[in-house]
Simulated scan of single mutants.
Amino acid sequence: MILEISNVLVSSDIITEQFCCDLDKCKGICCVEGDAGAPVTMDEIAGIESALDTVWGDMSASAQAVVDQQGVAYTDRDGDLVTSIVGGKDCVFTCYEGDCCLCALERAYRQGKTQFIKPISCALYPIREKRFKDGTVALNYNRWDVCEDAVKKGKELGLRVYRFLESPLVRRFGQEWYDELCAVADEYIKAYK
């Protein structure tokens, strides 16, 4: 079912499904699996480029070579702007802490070294945003087998996708929109129990 929240189409799975990243189990595999980089906007590319000097030392030599050759982003086969990748799968901004893959951009932000956090598409995962030519935005829950531990943890905690992603949803759409989403979600859950 699709719900409309202030001109944003929201899949009901975002309200009903449960999810909570479990970095201890998945080790951040979403940064190094897939066939394209993370979707980005032109504004985000500017933010990434402004943070590049700060995170350069955290990037692998092969990631640095890719950025030197093609920049921080490219247009994928679907015509979308995405972060550059290494070896057809690893995001160039992947860095490692122990056996975990982390985002060099986010780590630098958390350390107070840069103002750019990371692409909103990364922060919103497992929600994927689709923009249509008429300006309509749709949010869908993306199921990926590498996130099965996150689904399990979400169920253990009783944490729904939209609650888990409160901060990035507020970052993307604003507090007023998120409050409306919560109100609609409460009514939806009551109606479909």
Rank of each mutant, 00 (worst) to 15 (best):
V151G: 05
T83V: 07
V161L: 09
L165C: 07
E49F: 07
V66A: 04
I117V: 10
F132L: 12
M59P: 03
Y178N: 09
L105R: 00
E148V: 12
C30K: 04
G112P: 06
K190W: 00
K118T: 06
Y141P: 06
G154S: 10
G28T: 09
V86N: 01
T83I: 04
Y162T: 04
Y178I: 10
V67L: 09
R163T: 05
P119C: 10
V67R: 02
R171F: 11
A73C: 08
I85W: 00
D68R: 15
D76R: 10
Y192N: 15
D43R: 15
K25Y: 00
D90W: 08
E33Q: 14
S167F: 12
E180G: 09
D22E: 13
C147K: 00
F116W: 05
G154I: 07
G158P: 07
M1A: 13
N140P: 00
D149W: 12
R143A: 08
D90C: 12
A183R: 12
D13K: 12
L124P: 03
D99R: 12
Y74C: 09
V151I: 15
F19K: 04
M42Y: 13
V55G: 01
P168F: 09
C100S: 12
C95A: 10
D145H: 10
M59K: 06
R131F: 04
A150R: 00
G28D: 11
E176L: 13
Y125M: 12
V170H: 03
D22K: 02
S60L: 09
A123R: 15
V161A: 04
V40E: 01
I120G: 02
R143G: 03
I117M: 09
P119M: 06
S11Q: 13
T75Q: 10
G154D: 08
E44C: 07
V8M: 06
C182K: 09
G79W: 02
E187F: 03
K130H: 14
D58T: 07
S12L: 04
E17W: 09
I14C: 02
R110A: 08
L165W: 05
N142Q: 14
I2N: 13
A65T: 10
C20V: 08
S12K: 13
R171N: 14
D134Q: 09
K155F: 09
E4D: 15
D179W: 09
L139R: 03
V86S: 02
K89W: 08
V92F: 13
Q175W: 05
V8S: 07
V184A: 05
Y162P: 02
F164M: 15
T54I: 12
G28A: 10
L102Q: 15
E4Y: 06
C147R: 01
V92E: 02
P119Y: 05
C182G: 04
Y141L: 14
V72Y: 00
D22R: 03
A73N: 00
I127K: 06
V170N: 01
L3D: 05
G57K: 15
C101P: 03
K133T: 11
S6F: 08
F19G: 02
G158R: 10
E44L: 06
R77L: 00
Q115D: 14
V82E: 01
V146A: 14
L9T: 02
A36Q: 12
A46C: 13
L23G: 01
Q175Y: 11
Q69M: 11
E180H: 14
A108T: 02
A108Q: 04
Q111C: 11
K130L: 11
N142A: 10
L52Y: 07
R172P: 03
V151D: 07
E187S: 13
V170G: 01
A191P: 00
F173L: 10
F164C: 15
Y192G: 01
R172C: 08
